[in-house]
Design a protein around this nucleic acid. Structure first.
Lengths: 224, 224
DNA sequence: CTCGGAGTCAAACACATGTTTGATTCCTGC
DNA sequence: GCAGGAATCAAACATGTGTTTGACTCCGAG
């Protein structure tokens, strides 16, 4: 019974975070979800902020570990560069499995991260960047091998585009109009297939012309 | 002097909305920014919610109008489908000009919308969907002519990917580490050129295989 | 000059937030 | 069985929120 309340707090909190966002979830929403006392969060975590970080880390660390392990394995299989499509599969797979899960707790992290993408809260931003930066670098390194026609900075930007598209797609899956888990899983699979085609083509596209050096005028011209 | 305070409230509010998000901007933050009284918002707008909607609409209506006019013009110029690249230019241009503007007020709307993308607030979601839906449909119609190898639903999803990537890129431009407006404008131009290449290739990619019918196994396979 | 509405103001409202307190219950180790 | 820490509890705290009130100033029309 010792850490039971502690675990139940985290479980209840993470689905509330997914539903309402980290910012808009109050102590009282969490404790009342499991019939606990308002002081329980302070007792078990010290503060609400600490609980938020604990919830994020519990799901986040295994996710990063899985990605890195898969990347390592794919890289070790052959001396040739890992194909872009395979790299994207490795990147997306863990998150997609969570997003399609039947367990609301499993499903929470992708939703939380997708929200965090656009609602920058300096504290988590920093926390996640520290946790993310290393394995993002590893993927960018491997992408650079697979896309020798692009310089590193353009690769980083394009990977950012992919992450933005992915997050946006995940938010769509959150649409409350998609109720049944059967339909949700189907939608996730569908979007996954379409996103994969889109992202591979986008990443492999020819390098952008330097807008300064381009003789053909600005890439985005006035619509006059 | 009549509507002076009213206008100043909207001006101050929109940059605060861009900075802190619609949700996290309080009445007192707004009024203290221009030295007005807390009751002034109630007097001029009825409520804080009404002020938010007024701020959104003031910038939003001209944006939609510009896009539709440019689309109409491009479509009238030739009986052939408008190229994908041109459609994206028309879509991005107004927002990009705002994002690169020197006026913080001009710059606010893209930031607000980019935040709103991931922080769904039912009230504005509805408001914006009503305002957006018609001209999104018009763009999808034209995209369908330019991309005859894709069915309508896949086009809609891909356009969503583009919007997600665009929003994410705009959020990057918001990075407080990018201080000088000179550097910001440069970054916007750079990202624009790269995003254009990425998005055109992504939209024009071959249709995704139906994950059910695909004999080659799941598109995203387990990373075991 | 005066009346009256437009606009502003300080102060308080009712409510929600995270945190804190001190007492009380619970259960394990002795 | 009992001592003592772990865990829970109701209640209050201080602060922030949007809103409301009623008096106040201002200024143009009659």
């Amino acid at each position: 019974m010792a850490n039971d309340t502690k675990r139940r707090l985290m479980d209840a909190a993470e689905v509330l975070f997914a539903e309402h966002g980290l910012r808009n979830t109050s102590v009282r929403m969490i404790v009342s979800a499991i019939g606990a006392n308002v002081a329980s969060i302070r007792f078990h975590f010290g503060s609400l902020e600490e609980l938020k970080k604990a919830v994020l880390m519990r799901r986040f660390e295994p996710l990063v570990a899985r990605r890195l392990a898969s990347l390592e394995e794919a890289r070790g299989a052959t001396p040739r560069p890992v194909p872009v499509r395979r790299l994207l599969e490795i990147w997306f797979a863990p998150m997609l499995e969570m997003a399609a899960s039947l367990d609301p707790g499993e499903r929470a992290l992708p939703r939380i991260l997708a929200r965090l993408q656009a609602d920058p809260a300096p504290e988590y931003e920093l926390l996640l960047q520290q946790e993310l930066a290393p394995h993002v670098e590893a993927f960018l390194d491997e992408l650079a091998r697979a896309l020798p026609h692009l310089d590193r900075s353009e690769i980083a930007h394009r990977f950012d585009f992919v992450i933005g598209a992915f997050g946006h797609a995940l938010r769509r899956v959150d649409d409350p109009r998609v109720r049944s888990s059967r339909r949700r899983r189907e939608l996730v699979r569908r979007l996954t297939a379409e996103l994969m085609e889109f992202a591979v083509a986008g990443l492999e596209a020819p390098a952008a012309r330097d807008p300064d050096a381009a003789p053909g005028g600005p890439v985005v011209q006035s619509t006059a």
